[in-house]
Amino acid sequence: MRIAICDDDEIIVKDLHKKLDKTIQKMNMNAGIFDFTDGYDLLYEIETAGIFDIIFLDIEIGKVNGIELADYLNHQKYVFTLIFISQHSNYYKAAFEVQPFWFLDKPFEEEKLEASLKKAIDQLNYQYETINYFYAKEYYRVLIDDIMYVQSQGRTILLYCIEDKIYRFYGKLGDIEEELKTKHRKFVRINRSVCVNIKYVAKWTYKYMEMSNGETINIGEKYRDEVREYFQNWIREKVKEYD
């Protein structure tokens, strides 16, 4: 596992590096930690040597804005987990667009650091979970994190993914739903034939959901209260992440 720390204050970087080292040993992990005091250096490293799994990023790194950097990385479709080492609330709104992420306030307490690291690894694992199936004698692996929603049409299951990709195979929605929920936890059934990934929901209303690609999907009447409940719980979980 590769971990990057990026902050313009060298003392902070060294401190975090030391504490991370300790935590990693404690957790019996195998990881390399790389220090950066400049956003451009981090970017260069990523573009030449590949993405880091976990990035600890300050929001103001000299001339570079951490939010913009994270946004850029997200757009490059890199899979990584982001932890902002800051308490700048002004940037919160901008940070909304960048997911997944959370904040870790300075000075770093070891307990919180360990919790963050565990959460980040969890998050990473989710992002690498796949759904595997055979269709027309070929074997497919689809990243669950990339699925926007799953739809059943008769006996066919359609996986609507990002970048307008659609995969199909034979199966029952109930079974797929179960699999997705155990592997990823972010899926919710919203009507008789559709199960959505809440990550790609841009707008939730009681009667319908608007996906991040602009599509709207109606929520079945019987499912509405359940979906609202799910949404509320999802927010509660989210609140917990900001401890």
Partner: peptide, 13 residues
Amino acid sequence: LSIVYEKSNLYIE
């Protein structure tokens, strides 16, 4: 007290 804005919704608990 929690106040969260998510997916075009304001959640207050």
